[in-house]
Simulated scan of single mutants.
Amino acid sequence: MALALMLAGAGPLYARTLRIVALGDSLTAGYGLSANLAFPAVLEKALKEKGFDVEIVNAGVSGDISAGLLARLDWALGDGALDGAIVEIGANDMLRGLNPDQTRANIDAILAKLRERKIPFLIAGMRSAPNLGGPYAEQFEPLFAALAQKYQAPLYPFFLEGVAGHPDRQLPDGLHPNRAGVETIVAGILPAVTAWLDALPKS
Protein backbone atom coordinates (compact mmCIF):
# COMPACT_ATOMS: atom_id res chain seq x y z
CA MET A 1 0.00 0.00 0.00
CA ALA A 2 2.80 2.43 0.93
CA LEU A 3 4.63 1.62 -2.30
CA ALA A 4 1.48 2.27 -4.32
CA LEU A 5 1.08 5.66 -2.66
CA MET A 6 4.70 6.54 -3.38
CA LEU A 7 4.29 5.63 -7.03
CA ALA A 8 1.07 7.60 -7.24
CA GLY A 9 2.91 10.71 -6.12
CA ALA A 10 5.78 10.30 -8.56
CA GLY A 11 3.91 11.65 -11.58
CA PRO A 12 1.25 10.26 -13.93
CA LEU A 13 1.57 6.70 -15.17
CA TYR A 14 1.43 6.66 -18.98
CA ALA A 15 1.50 3.68 -21.29
CA ARG A 16 4.37 5.29 -23.26
CA THR A 17 6.81 8.16 -23.30
CA LEU A 18 5.09 11.52 -23.76
CA ARG A 19 6.44 13.52 -26.73
CA ILE A 20 6.13 17.26 -26.21
CA VAL A 21 7.38 19.74 -28.80
CA ALA A 22 8.73 23.09 -27.62
CA LEU A 23 7.90 25.63 -30.34
CA GLY A 24 9.62 28.97 -30.18
CA ASP A 25 12.46 31.31 -30.96
CA SER A 26 16.00 31.65 -29.57
CA LEU A 27 14.68 31.51 -26.00
CA THR A 28 13.58 27.94 -26.70
CA ALA A 29 16.37 27.05 -29.11
CA GLY A 30 19.04 27.87 -26.52
CA TYR A 31 20.91 30.68 -28.22
CA GLY A 32 24.54 30.78 -27.05
CA LEU A 33 24.23 27.53 -25.09
CA SER A 34 24.96 23.88 -25.80
CA ALA A 35 21.93 21.73 -26.60
CA ASN A 36 21.90 20.07 -23.18
CA LEU A 37 21.62 23.48 -21.48
CA ALA A 38 18.75 24.77 -23.64
CA PHE A 39 15.25 25.12 -22.19
CA PRO A 40 13.78 21.90 -23.66
CA ALA A 41 16.61 19.70 -22.36
CA VAL A 42 16.62 21.28 -18.89
CA LEU A 43 12.83 21.04 -18.67
CA GLU A 44 12.92 17.39 -19.74
CA LYS A 45 15.48 16.64 -17.04
CA ALA A 46 13.40 18.40 -14.38
CA LEU A 47 10.26 16.54 -15.40
CA LYS A 48 12.03 13.18 -15.36
CA GLU A 49 13.24 13.94 -11.84
CA LYS A 50 9.56 14.33 -10.92
CA GLY A 51 8.71 10.94 -12.37
CA PHE A 52 7.42 11.92 -15.80
CA ASP A 53 8.39 9.69 -18.74
CA VAL A 54 8.71 12.52 -21.25
CA GLU A 55 10.70 13.70 -24.25
CA ILE A 56 10.82 17.43 -24.99
CA VAL A 57 11.64 18.08 -28.65
CA ASN A 58 13.49 21.34 -29.31
CA ALA A 59 11.74 23.08 -32.21
CA GLY A 60 13.03 26.56 -31.44
CA VAL A 61 14.62 28.67 -34.19
CA SER A 62 16.70 31.70 -33.26
CA GLY A 63 15.38 34.93 -34.70
CA ASP A 64 11.93 33.55 -35.42
CA ILE A 65 8.91 35.79 -35.32
CA SER A 66 5.34 34.55 -35.05
CA ALA A 67 4.90 34.63 -38.84
CA GLY A 68 8.00 32.46 -39.20
CA LEU A 69 6.76 29.86 -36.74
CA LEU A 70 3.40 29.79 -38.46
CA ALA A 71 5.09 29.24 -41.82
CA ARG A 72 7.23 26.35 -40.55
CA LEU A 73 4.69 24.84 -38.19
CA ASP A 74 3.83 21.75 -40.24
CA TRP A 75 7.53 20.96 -40.60
CA ALA A 76 8.16 21.56 -36.90
CA LEU A 77 5.34 19.23 -35.88
CA GLY A 78 6.38 16.49 -38.29
CA ASP A 79 4.39 13.37 -38.99
CA GLY A 80 4.95 11.53 -35.71
CA ALA A 81 2.59 11.45 -32.78
CA LEU A 82 2.81 14.36 -30.36
CA ASP A 83 1.18 14.54 -26.96
CA GLY A 84 1.48 18.28 -26.52
CA ALA A 85 3.20 21.54 -27.44
CA ILE A 86 4.67 24.41 -25.49
CA VAL A 87 4.28 27.59 -27.53
CA GLU A 88 6.82 30.34 -26.79
CA ILE A 89 6.77 32.97 -29.52
CA GLY A 90 6.37 36.73 -29.85
CA ALA A 91 9.51 38.16 -28.27
CA ASN A 92 11.07 39.02 -31.63
CA ASP A 93 7.81 40.50 -32.87
CA MET A 94 7.93 42.79 -29.84
CA LEU A 95 11.61 43.66 -30.20
CA ARG A 96 10.99 44.64 -33.82
CA GLY A 97 7.95 46.70 -32.85
CA LEU A 98 5.65 44.69 -35.10
CA ASN A 99 1.93 45.33 -34.94
CA PRO A 100 0.57 43.34 -31.96
CA ASP A 101 -2.66 42.70 -33.86
CA GLN A 102 -0.69 40.78 -36.48
CA THR A 103 1.28 38.93 -33.81
CA ARG A 104 -1.98 37.91 -32.18
CA ALA A 105 -3.41 36.76 -35.53
CA ASN A 106 -0.31 34.67 -36.25
CA ILE A 107 -0.28 33.00 -32.83
CA ASP A 108 -4.02 32.45 -33.10
CA ALA A 109 -3.44 30.63 -36.40
CA ILE A 110 -0.67 28.53 -34.80
CA LEU A 111 -2.95 27.51 -31.95
CA ALA A 112 -5.81 26.78 -34.34
CA LYS A 113 -3.56 24.39 -36.28
CA LEU A 114 -2.53 22.66 -33.07
CA ARG A 115 -6.18 22.33 -32.05
CA GLU A 116 -7.03 20.97 -35.51
CA ARG A 117 -4.37 18.29 -35.05
CA LYS A 118 -5.67 17.57 -31.54
CA ILE A 119 -2.36 18.55 -29.95
CA PRO A 120 -2.89 20.08 -26.49
CA PHE A 121 -0.79 23.16 -25.82
CA LEU A 122 0.53 25.41 -23.09
CA ILE A 123 1.16 29.05 -23.94
CA ALA A 124 4.18 30.97 -22.65
CA GLY A 125 3.57 34.71 -22.59
CA MET A 126 5.92 37.65 -23.05
CA ARG A 127 6.10 41.21 -21.77
CA SER A 128 6.99 44.30 -23.72
CA ALA A 129 10.35 46.03 -23.35
CA PRO A 130 10.01 49.33 -21.44
CA ASN A 131 11.57 51.35 -24.26
CA LEU A 132 8.61 50.54 -26.52
CA GLY A 133 6.33 52.59 -24.30
CA GLY A 134 3.04 52.07 -22.52
CA PRO A 135 0.69 52.12 -25.54
CA TYR A 136 2.60 49.29 -27.23
CA ALA A 137 2.68 47.23 -24.03
CA GLU A 138 -1.07 47.73 -23.58
CA GLN A 139 -1.62 46.17 -27.00
CA PHE A 140 1.05 43.46 -26.87
CA GLU A 141 1.01 41.98 -23.40
CA PRO A 142 -2.70 41.06 -23.11
CA LEU A 143 -2.75 39.06 -26.35
CA PHE A 144 -1.38 35.92 -24.67
CA ALA A 145 -4.03 35.85 -21.96
CA ALA A 146 -6.73 36.57 -24.54
CA LEU A 147 -5.65 33.62 -26.66
CA ALA A 148 -5.34 31.36 -23.63
CA GLN A 149 -8.91 32.27 -22.73
CA LYS A 150 -10.12 31.74 -26.29
CA TYR A 151 -8.67 28.23 -26.44
CA GLN A 152 -9.14 27.43 -22.74
CA ALA A 153 -5.43 26.62 -22.60
CA PRO A 154 -2.99 26.99 -19.70
CA LEU A 155 -0.84 30.12 -19.72
CA TYR A 156 2.51 30.81 -18.12
CA PRO A 157 2.29 34.61 -18.16
CA PHE A 158 5.94 35.62 -18.62
CA PHE A 159 8.50 33.19 -19.98
CA LEU A 160 11.44 35.32 -18.78
CA GLU A 161 10.15 35.73 -15.24
CA GLY A 162 13.16 36.02 -12.92
CA VAL A 163 15.54 36.48 -15.85
CA ALA A 164 14.61 39.79 -17.47
CA GLY A 165 16.36 42.56 -15.57
CA HIS A 166 18.80 40.13 -13.92
CA PRO A 167 22.20 40.43 -15.64
CA ASP A 168 23.58 37.48 -13.67
CA ARG A 169 21.04 35.23 -15.39
CA GLN A 170 21.58 36.62 -18.88
CA LEU A 171 24.17 36.34 -21.61
CA PRO A 172 26.25 39.48 -22.21
CA ASP A 173 23.71 40.61 -24.84
CA GLY A 174 21.25 41.30 -22.04
CA LEU A 175 18.48 39.47 -23.89
CA HIS A 176 19.03 35.74 -23.70
CA PRO A 177 19.21 33.54 -20.61
CA ASN A 178 22.51 31.99 -19.62
CA ARG A 179 22.71 28.61 -17.91
CA ALA A 180 21.44 30.02 -14.62
CA GLY A 181 18.72 31.87 -16.49
CA VAL A 182 17.43 28.72 -18.16
CA GLU A 183 17.35 26.99 -14.79
CA THR A 184 15.36 29.94 -13.44
CA ILE A 185 12.89 29.71 -16.33
CA VAL A 186 12.43 25.98 -15.82
CA ALA A 187 11.95 26.36 -12.07
CA GLY A 188 9.30 29.00 -12.69
CA ILE A 189 7.35 27.22 -15.42
CA LEU A 190 7.65 23.72 -13.96
CA PRO A 191 4.51 23.82 -11.78
CA ALA A 192 2.42 24.96 -14.74
CA VAL A 193 3.89 22.26 -16.98
CA THR A 194 3.41 19.48 -14.46
CA ALA A 195 -0.21 20.50 -13.86
CA TRP A 196 -0.77 20.56 -17.62
CA LEU A 197 0.82 17.14 -18.12
CA ASP A 198 -1.22 15.72 -15.24
CA ALA A 199 -4.37 16.81 -17.09
CA LEU A 200 -3.43 15.13 -20.40
CA PRO A 201 -5.20 11.89 -21.34
CA LYS A 202 -3.39 8.88 -19.84
CA SER A 203 -3.45 6.65 -22.91
Rank of each mutant, 00 (worst) to 15 (best):
P142M: 08
L69D: 03
A187I: 02
F121G: 03
D74R: 13
G188F: 03
L132V: 12
S66R: 09
G165Q: 07
P201Q: 10
V186H: 12
L33Q: 08
A29P: 04
R115T: 15
Q152M: 04
V87Y: 03
K113G: 01
V87R: 06
K45R: 09
H176L: 06
I185D: 00
Y151L: 03
L27I: 13
L47R: 01
S62N: 15
P142W: 08
Y31R: 12
L171Y: 04
Y136T: 02
G97P: 08
A76L: 15
P154C: 12
N106V: 05
L200E: 12
M6L: 15
R104E: 12
S26P: 05
E161F: 00
I107R: 01
R127N: 11
N131H: 13
K118W: 01
G63V: 11
R179I: 06
I185A: 02
L122P: 04
A46Q: 07
G90T: 10
G181Y: 02
A105L: 11
A10K: 14
T17G: 04
N131K: 14
P135L: 08
N99F: 08
Y136C: 01
I107H: 01
A187S: 14
A46M: 04
P177L: 03
L111M: 15
F159H: 02
P154D: 12
L190G: 05
A81I: 09
N92M: 13
A164G: 12
D25A: 06
A105N: 12
S66M: 11
G90R: 01
H166A: 04
G125E: 04
V61Y: 11
I89V: 09
S26N: 07
